[in-house]
Amino acid sequence: MSDTTPEAIERTVERLIDEVGSWPGVTVGDHRFGGTEWRVGPREIGHVHEWGMLDVAYLRALRDALIEEGQTGVHHLLDQSGWTTFYIEGEADYDHARRLVRLSYLYHVAVLKKTPAGAETYAEIDVESELATLDPSDAVRAAFERRRPGRTGAPGE
């Protein structure tokens, strides 16, 4: 059985903060509403509170696909935005929480790589191969790539 005590949740949150903060291009700071936030360049990819509330930023279509699959929930306040809320309830939630933040990170890096400065800054990050390791569903991949589900081919075709 997994440890779900407040102390275990705090340890899991700290582990997540450290892990995400080690990713290339991520900066860690205090969030304006409490907790710790992560940014890639000017973009906030998410933030977490010590009691386990994890808010993650996505493109709205990506957020919708993740909610439809039950991977995360509607944001606790901004229910019409691209933000989601996932509650870390113990150590067993670490891998899933990390995956949610990693998906946001990869999405935002992919967007930034389309700019000259971002292409240089994030050149070493192979978004496509890293996305493949997350093994997203077809619907999540389609939303990530900004195409309609069931459609084949590259984005923009």
Rank of each mutant, 00 (worst) to 15 (best):
V40Y: 01
E14G: 12
G25M: 09
V28G: 01
L106P: 00
L62N: 05
L59R: 12
L78R: 13
R148G: 05
E44A: 13
W23H: 05
D95G: 12
D95I: 01
D30K: 13
H49N: 10
I9N: 02
V56M: 13
L134Y: 07
E91P: 05
R15C: 05
G34V: 12
P42E: 10
E124F: 00
V101A: 03
R146T: 13
S104C: 07
T133I: 02
Y105M: 03
D64N: 15
V140E: 01
L78S: 10
P116G: 03
E44R: 15
L106F: 04
L54W: 14
G156E: 02
A154K: 13
S22I: 06
E10Y: 03
E7W: 07
R11K: 15
E130S: 06
T85I: 10
A119V: 00
H47P: 08
V140K: 03
T115F: 01
S104R: 06
E14Y: 10
E69Q: 12
E50T: 15
H49I: 07
R99K: 14
L77Y: 15
E50F: 11
E37L: 02
E19P: 00
G82I: 14
D64R: 13
P24L: 05
V109S: 00
D138T: 10
V140P: 00
S81T: 14
I125G: 06
T121Q: 10
D30Q: 11
A65T: 07
G46C: 04
A154G: 04
E44N: 13
L78E: 14
A57G: 11
Y122I: 05
H49P: 02
R147W: 05
R43S: 05
A142C: 04
W38D: 00
D135T: 13
S22D: 11
H76F: 14
E124D: 15
H47F: 15
T152N: 08
F86S: 08
G52N: 11
G73D: 15
I45M: 08
E19R: 10
L134T: 11
R39A: 06
G35S: 08
E124C: 00
D18H: 14
H75W: 09
V74Y: 03
D30N: 09
Y105V: 01
A97R: 04
G90S: 06
T12A: 13
G156A: 06
T121Y: 04
D18R: 15
A110L: 01
A143E: 07
R102A: 10
W83Q: 04
T27I: 11
Y58V: 15
L59P: 03
L100W: 04
